[in-house]
């Protein structure tokens, strides 16, 4: 067996003739060529789909329950579709400004970065502000967190999403702050890219929520539930009959 130790590549630029193109020279290579932090962010976002998946499952499970029990206010009477559409539009456009911020810093444009990041943060704040306004309106119309299952599942789902947006806004403002201190260079574009991944993810979650929670009309879904096979045993009845027996 040969025992020669071979050093394929040692110092900078040694052994030419290979592909010299590499985007982030500051970030050392990894086994896969994927950046540590970017891989972490994608893993986190994949995990976050399960987080929102569980919340959406909860919402959809209880969709129509308030109508079944005859406990208002119902979503059909309380949702302000034009208002929420504007909110959805605002968040969608914040994704555009976010991606423009990334394009700016990839070209080394500090000023562009700050402007677009601030614009994104502003649009994000508008969205959160709109959500605050919406929640206050709903409370005025009699829908509290504990009023009915619609209130509980609606506030918790959209509230968790709003918390995600709020964290995103704080993150963006932090990036602006770092940039103002002169800390962001072209090589740091990955910092912006990762924040952007988070921000766009929050946007796609809203795309799903907007459709499933707001736009799909309520009567139809309630009908689907009611028309299904009645011979299946209701788990509620069973659970409560157990309690009944205990007492």
């Amino acid at each position: 067996m040969a025992t020669t130790a071979i050093d394929v590549r040692t110092a900078h630029g040694a052994g030419g003739g290979h592909v010299e193109e590499h985007g982030h020279s500051e970030h050392p290579p990894t086994s896969t060529g994927m950046d540590h932090r970017k891989l972490l962010m994608w893993a986190f976002l994949t995990s976050d789909t399960m987080f929102f998946g569980s919340l959406i499952a909860t919402y959809l499970t209880y969709r129509g329950r308030a109508e079944d029990l005859g406990e208002g206010p119902y979503p059909s009477e309380i949702f302000d579709i034009p208002f929420t559409s504007v909110s959805a539009f605002v968040l969608l456009m914040s994704s555009l400004t976010m991606v423009l911020a990334l394009a700016a810093i990839q070209k080394g444009n500090q000023r562009g970065l700050r402007i677009w990041l601030l614009a994104t943060a502003l649009l994000g704040s508008m969205f959160v502000g709109g959500q605050y306004f919406e929640f206050t309106e709903f409370v005025h119309e009699g829908l509290g967190l504990t009023t009915n299952m619609f209130g509980s599942s609606f506030y918790v789902l959209t509230g968790f999403h709003g918390a995600h947006v709020t964290i995103g806004v704080i993150w963006l403002l932090t990036l602006v702050f770092v940039s103002l201190r002169g800390g962001t260079t072209q090589g740091d574009s990955l910092d912006v890219e990762i924040a952007g991944l988070y921000w766009h993810f929050v946007d796609i979650v809203w795309i799903v929520i907007f459709t499933l929670v707001y736009l799909i009309p309520y009567e139809e879904v309630a009908d689907v539930g009611a028309s299904e096979a009645a011979h299946l045993i209701s788990t509620f009845g069973r659970e409560l009959s157990v309690i009944n027996g205990l007492w």
Binding site: G13, H18, S25, T32
Partner: peptide
């Protein structure tokens, strides 16, 4: 810091 081009431990060239 290693040179550009190859990534250690990979079987192939990777661009990010």
């Amino acid at each position: 810091p290693t040179g550009p081009g190859t990534k250690p431990g990979t079987d192939h060239l990777v661009t990010d």
